[in-house]
Design a protein around this nucleic acid. Sequence first.
DNA 1: TTCCAGGCTTAAC
DNA 2: GTTAAGCATGGA
Length: 301
Amino acid sequence: MNDLLFELPLPEFFDLGACLAYMNRSPLECLFRSDSKGVNRLFVLEGAPVLVRLTVAEDQPLRLKATLLAGVRPGAEAIADLARYIVEWFDLDRDLAPFYRIADVDPLLRPLAVSERGLRIIGIPDLFEALCWAILGQQVNLAFAYRLKQRLTAEYGESLEWEGHTYYHFPRPEVFLTVTQEELCSLQLTRNKARTVLEVAALIAGGGLSREELLALPTPEAAEQRLLKLRGIGPWTSQYVRMRCLRDTTAYPVGDVGLQNAVKFLTGMDRKPTPAELLEFAVPWHGWEAYATFYLWRALY
DNA sequence: TTCCAGGCTTAAC
DNA sequence: GTTAAGCATGGA
């Protein structure tokens, strides 16, 4: 079966290979499966699992092609929703020319702007998934964070078998309304993380928090303040969500150990930079701090 | 063994 | 308002 769902025009400065390289940084990733030419991901559309493959159609003009691998072909409205998700997943409607005008002459960013040309911030458009991924990643190494996400997803998410591989969809918040803290602790979440995941799930499931509501606030800082009110959500998590879910290019997680280590490595400092020093480095990046961070992370791999 | 991981909360000053 | 300890586990 090779059922075309839609094609999206690709902007200047888009390189699927560079994006896939980032997405492939852990073999433990459970929410999509990529190869050299594309990525497969399970979606739930109209309540039914749908396995979709994204590739680049090479004939001019370049287009991102979505094909249906498995599941029932969704209706036009669901397909339009999926297309919007893909645009946000790969940040396709962003003009990167201003970022490269900065990065190409920046001592820290220039090598990455060359080697990672066409990399876009890989988003986490679903707010619950983004919050959970950030919560799981607090203070632990990435490999362990991926294991926690895999356990949570395998236990509570939907799945679909296709050609010998199981594809998973991140659990919806409603699923956690009947889950206890002890159950999540048995997956090796700390009590704090388990509690935070359950409280965030209940809040989102009950309509007390949504991506739309955060985006409707007057500024990204206001969205950050809203998230900071939640127990278990601190500065790093709220800035991370601004960057990867709310698509705020000015988000700058100065407390991020990966960012600190990348700057330490690229500058040759004998210690990690302080948040104040990171803010100094970021002065020329004004407006593109999140993209700078995302590119700097690539220096670690 | 020790230290660090894409931190946050609580308690104590 | 700032600082220190506790959290839980895996990897180097």
